[in-house]
Design a protein around this nucleic acid. Structure first.
Lengths: 350, 350
DNA sequence: GACCGTCACTGAACCGGTAAAGTCCCTATT
DNA sequence: AATAGGGACTTTACCGGTTCAGTGACGGTC
């Protein structure tokens, strides 16, 4: 069974069939003025009959327009699958891209240098019209690379991390502060935070905010540990925190993502501690996962899908000229109390 | 602050700088014979100095080669984020694409008709050299569309679902059978299965296999329910199954993915049932999630990353001519016992 | 020393669109 | 009646690569 020799319909065939020139077909398909209704219809009819769709390479070659944007993600595959964040984020991005018939070029990279190189080829090779940048580090090589290239981007991260790049961010500092205040208001004094990878800029921001909040509230027992965002690391951190004795053991733990909170929950169970009676747990991001545990997880909740959509919208603004007012925050995560947080001490008899 | 007028380095500039013709540069960059070592070096040097990268549109326009493959996913965004499966799968695909400097065009679609249309534009517009098809339904419109187009694809799904398309699949029937046998061997007779969306072909396959296995083992108490793969649906199903009384209540439940198993676990806890003493739970896919619960989840485990990689490899084979031996299974998921399965009845005193 | 074969490289014709300038015709204006 | 203006198309350059039929030089052969 051989493939038929592939008809290869081009704009010329459509033009011939409609009895017009290539130019006319181009006008029609780009809904530009200068054609009569009748001709337009004939052209579309011809195109439909021949099953023609414009060759995107040819189109972007001559129009120097590109109908794709890039997203490179730099995290170990092992962690990516688990983080509900990314897929939700991508689906938000998609929702905006689709309505502008734009595609998403996705690539997983191993390190930021590789990513910078990728951005270079993407841009110089005219494969993308712009790109979304996530997971900023201290000393991130990307802002410089992007600046040098003139590549339109939207950075996902606080301006203090993304330099002069147009950026969209969540106000993590405020969110952390709210989380700590909430737990403190419940009566907790020994609050711990299981943070994400220290290399990430947003981790540092949260870490600093946590310290600050603890100081402001005079919480002597505040502690933080860094992880790699994986469930295993979250479990390990939790185990280490909870195995402290008596007055050293935290009564509440804030996690930097859902997965670690879930892991923490089962570590608590495994150690015979009741949640929230003996220890309160607070998750971050609030994917569906938080409602699937027992007890359900209180979380700092935000609309990740909407976040992605907003980022994509901003990217389009940046691409089509006006960088004006590019940078802006999206709504701060809000505290969503569920079953895993409560006043401390009810379980002191243990 | 204005963008500099964008230098726009082209192959001509490189050629001029190296003192050769465009053709020579092309030869060099496609590592084709016909150039002296010295010239080659001069060309590369010139390219590096000018920071040139070939324009991919121009390249694929004239060479009719495309350096991207498509993947359209048709599931509600809400579920996608949660399914560790997809990100892991994508990362596997990526790992193979990257080494051939090929990109992944990702698109989330709302229904299969939209996807079929997308494949049409992707292919006719020469945006992709091939595509990966997932989540087959009964009466799936895609095989016909793909056949008509002559689009190179690899279908992820059992040949009985994917028609004559080259396909890669996991042997779900065997895996289900193994799962049931395992539980039966532990002594369970009342085994339930919380399946995925009935529309999916692989769900039907598993459903049939479960029935068959139950019949073969003469398990009178076997039951199945369909869900939409979401954690909530999994929780609901579990609640309904476990609220049956006495001899109607299953002593073991198999889930079609991780998320539902996690949800099931907390429903059991919520209902005061101990796992595995009162009820055994068996998850599917075995992402890291299964090791983060308490008790840990026994699961049918497979290498999703490797699956993705294998699919990508097969797609390349299909694209580069030989469909020969395209279709093949990947290793069948293997049973990985953990803490959520045990012989029944130890908890009958409840 | 004429002839042949290679090797290294050039030149020009594409690939399939877009865009800007040009053509033609028809109507309104002076 | 001559002219301007505008709508409806057509023509014709590109866009930035790839490909392939040359071309010239050089070495070897008889």
């Amino acid at each position: 069974m051989t493939t038929p020799p592939a008809p290869r319909v081009t704009i010329k065939d459509v033009a011939a069939r409609a009895g017009v020139s290539k130019g006319a077909v181009s006008l029609a398909f780009n809904q530009r003025p200068g054609l009569s209704e009748a001709t337009r219809d004939r052209i579309f009819a011809a195109a439909r009959e021949l099953g023609w769709a414009p060759n995107s390479s040819a189109r972007s070659l001559s129009s120097r327009r590109v109908d794709a944007v890039g997203l490179a993600i730099c995290r170990p595959a092992r962690l990516l699958g688990l983080e509900p964040f990314y897929m939700e984020f991508v689906s938000g991005v998609e929702s905006v891209l689709t309505e502008r018939s734009c595609s998403l070029l996705l690539r997983l990279v191993r390190n930021l240098e590789e990513e910078a190189g990728l951005l270079d080829t993407w841009w110089k090779g005219k494969q993308v019209g712009g790109s979304i940048l996530v997971d900023f580090h201290a000393d991130d090589p990307r802002p410089a690379a992007v600046e040098r290239l003139g590549l339109p981007v939207v950075a996902v991260g606080h301006p203090s991390l993304t330099g002069s790049l147009p950026s969209v961010w969540t106000d993590d500092a405020t969110a952390v502060t709210e989380a700590v205040r909430y737990l403190a208001a419940l009566g907790h004094r020994r609050i711990a935070r299981v943070g994400g990878a220290a290399a990430f800029g947003h981790t540092s921001i949260r870490t600093a905010a946590f310290d600050e909040a603890a100081r402001a509230l005079e919480l002597a027992g505040a502690r933080q540990v860094a992880t790699d965002f994986s469930g295993e690391a979250g479990a390990r951190a939790t185990r280490s925190l909870l195995s402290a004795t008596g007055a050293d053991r935290p009564t509440a733990i804030v996690y930097d993502n859902d997965i670690m909170a879930v892991a923490g929950l089962s570590v608590a169970a495994e150690m015979g501690l009741r949640v929230p009676a003996d220890v309160s747990l607070l998750a971050w991001d609030d994917s569906q996962l938080c409602r699937l545990t027992h007890p359900t997880l209180s979380a700092m909740s935000h609309d990740v899908h909407g976040f992605g959509a907003e980022v994509a919208r901003t990217l389009f603004e940046v691409i089509t000229g006006g960088e004006g007012g590019g940078s802006h925050p999206v709504p701060t995560p809000v505290l969503t109390p569920r079953g895993s947080t409560a006043p401390p001490g009810r379980g002191n008899h243990m």
